[in-house]
């Protein structure tokens, strides 16, 4: 038996909108730790890892570990029927081939049940080791989204370079080239607007902008985004989910032949 009650149901709606462009079908894993997902895009270039910790739910019952295969577009269709202020409860019985999403209005005057068919998904699970990164950039998520959108009208790839001067996002294409530099800016009274750069050593990596743009769909989950870079590793683009967990996107770099 599984029963997870999330008072801030809009978080689940936002999570779905953030990942459904990247991943079509995925297994949601439920354990004592929390509600999680790990999935790759169809090209195996990007990976998304989601964690919603058990403590973040008002009620969390998961009698035994359960993996539920869901089509994310279908799940998004169902969650779009929940109001933004609704409380969402996810329910499933052991061995069942369906999951139920229950939506309760804040005043408890409307209760809806949506039952969705589960599917068998044969997915690879990758071990992601804890790593030291050469540079970690924390910046406003809206700013990062704007930069990725702006650069993708010029080129297909972005070179992210971190030096002691700041973080530089560069692209070039048929019509020309562009460079955007963000300097460290620790605005004291508005921490959500800060740009903080922790650099062990300079790093410069190239990534496909199409994926970066897709990751920025998670911007509504968090005011800040953290970008972790190392020359030997995929970049990690992380959005914290208020008090509950995170959504992390990993993207393999493009390497010069």
């Amino acid at each position: 038996m599984l029963e997870l009650r999330l008072v801030q149901g809009s978080l689940l709606k936002k999570v779905l909108e953030a990942i459904r462009e990247l991943v079509t079908d995925a297994n949601f894993d439920c354990s004592g730790t929390g509600f999680s997902l790990q999935a790759m895009d169809s090209s195996h270039v990007a990976l998304v890892a989601l964690l919603l910790r058990a403590e973040g739910f008002e009620h969390y019952r998961c009698d035994r570990n359960l993996s539920m295969g869901m089509n994310l577009n279908n799940m998004a269709k169902m969650l779009r029927c929940a109001g933004n202020d609704d409380i969402i409860t996810i329910k499933a019985d052991d061995g069942s081939d369906t999951v139920t999403f229950m939506f309760e209005s804040p005043k408890q005057d409307k209760i809806a049940d949506f039952e969705m068919k589960l599917m068998d998904i044969d997915s690879e699970h990758l071990g992601i080791p804890d790593s030291e990164y050469q540079a970690i950039v924390r910046m406003p998520s809206a700013e990062f989204m704007r930069i990725c959108k702006d650069l993708s009208s010029i080129g297909d790839t972005v070179i992210i370079s971190v030096t002691k001067e700041g973080v530089k996002f560069s692209t070039s294409g048929e019509i020309g080239s562009a460079n955007i530099v963000c300097r460290q800016n620790q605005t004291v009274d508005k921490p959500e607007e800060a740009t903080v750069i922790e650099m062990q050593e300079p790093v410069s990596l190239t990534f496909a902008l199409r994926y970066m743009n897709s990751f920025t769909k998670a911007s509504s989950l968090s005011d800040q985004v953290t970008i972790s870079l190392s020359s030997e590793l995929p970049v990690v683009v992380e959005y914290k989910i208020a008090e509950m967990g995170y959504i992390r996107f990993y993207l393999a770099p493009k390497i010069e032949e």
Binding site: S43, H44, G127, P129, A208, L233, A252, K254, E257
Partner: peptide, 14 residues
């Protein structure tokens, strides 16, 4: 010329 690496070249299956 850049080649796109895959995530599976960095992280292994568990």
């Amino acid at each position: 010329q850049c080649i796109q690496k895959k995530i599976t070249e960095y992280f292994s299956k568990t």
